[in-house]
């Protein structure tokens, strides 16, 4: 028995097995299940095991699929660019302009306060604000900036992206802030001494060293936006669609196999996006 435990291979396997078991049971198995069901057939109120390509055939030949995927990418791309800009600026301010650590922590916690409520509530609270007779429009009218209420404030792509940016910017701030705090300040001093301008320090020192943080934040934001359905539904007034909504519609109509097929395609797409992102930065090396 004691000899067994001295076998390094065996202990290694044993140590890894709990995590492997958890992942296999709660991650791999459900995904396999989704893949299996995506080949099943469905009637109006039941699903039956089969191996057919109907779901994929319909999905890949429907013009709506392409349109919806493009829409999903549009949301992901615009949200990513905005959250990156805002998130980087906020993290930069916290890491390099706020000198005292107490203030850094205090301001950082301030950023997380909105997260004390559910994200659906944070999202829905925009609706009365942006509405035709909402706060934004009535304020602008009373200032004389506009005469007629702005219709595009609510139930439009604008409101969808606004909500996304509001909901997900923090996911960008946290990892970027984290990598910025690890940057050795003597590197910046050295760059200064070597005569680099502030902008050069930013582009040649800080941004390259922040890459892992930017990448982790990007992965968060892109996957969250691509998998979302509820924000798009509420903020567009059900008028726009993304892939998540296709899936939720199918589920509501009991078309589980078709929903599973869409989910598989979405999963593959997201993995491809993340794979591309990871080619730019080797996160494991940089961390």
């Amino acid at each position: 028995m004691a000899a067994l435990f001295r076998n390094r291979h065996l202990t290694g396997w044993l140590l890894a097995s709990p995590l492997a078991a958890v992942l296999a049971f709660f991650l791999v198995l459900p995904i396999l299940m989704i893949v299996v069901v995506s080949f099943w057939g469905a009637t109006e109120f039941s699903i039956y095991p089969a191996f057919e390509f109907d779901n994929y055939h319909f999905l890949l030949t429907s013009p709506v699929t392409l349109q919806v995927f493009l829409n999903t990418f549009k949301y992901a791309l615009v949200t990513w660019a905005l959250t990156l800009g805002i998130g980087f600026a906020v993290a930069y301010f916290l890491a390099f302009h706020v000198r005292s650590q107490t203030w850094q922590i205090a301001l950082f916690l301030l950023c997380t306060i909105p997260f004390w409520t559910s994200n659906i509530i944070r999202m829905i609270s925009w609706i009365p604000f942006l509405g035709r007779n909402g706060l934004a429009n009535s304020t602008l009218i009373s200032w004389g900036v506009i005469d007629e209420p702005l219709e595009w404030l609510l139930f439009s792509d604008f409101s969808v992206i606004l909500a996304f940016v509001h909901l997900y910017t923090l996911f960008m701030v946290v990892p970027i802030f984290n990598t910025m705090m690890r940057i050795d300040r003597s590197l910046i001093e050295a760059a200064n001494d070597a005569g680099a301008s502030g902008f050069q320090i930013l582009t040649n020192v800080i941004i390259p060293l922040c890459k892992p943080g930017i990448m982790i934040g990007s992965i968060f934001v892109v996957t969250l936006v691509m998998g979302d359905f509820i924000t798009v539904r509420f903020m567009s007034g059900s008028q726009s669609a993304n892939v998540g909504r296709l899936i939720s519609n199918d589920i509501a109509l009991l078309q589980y196999p078709s929903a599973a097929a869409t989910a598989v395609i979405l999963l593959v797409t997201v993995l491809m996006v993340i794979g591309t992102l990871l080619r730019f930065v080797d996160i494991r090396k940089e961390l």
Partner: peptide, 11 residues
């Protein structure tokens, strides 16, 4: 009909 309806919503 359901598929057409979904296209309408996504249009």
């Amino acid at each position: 009909m359901v598929r057409k309806w979904n296209e309408f919503i996504a249009a």
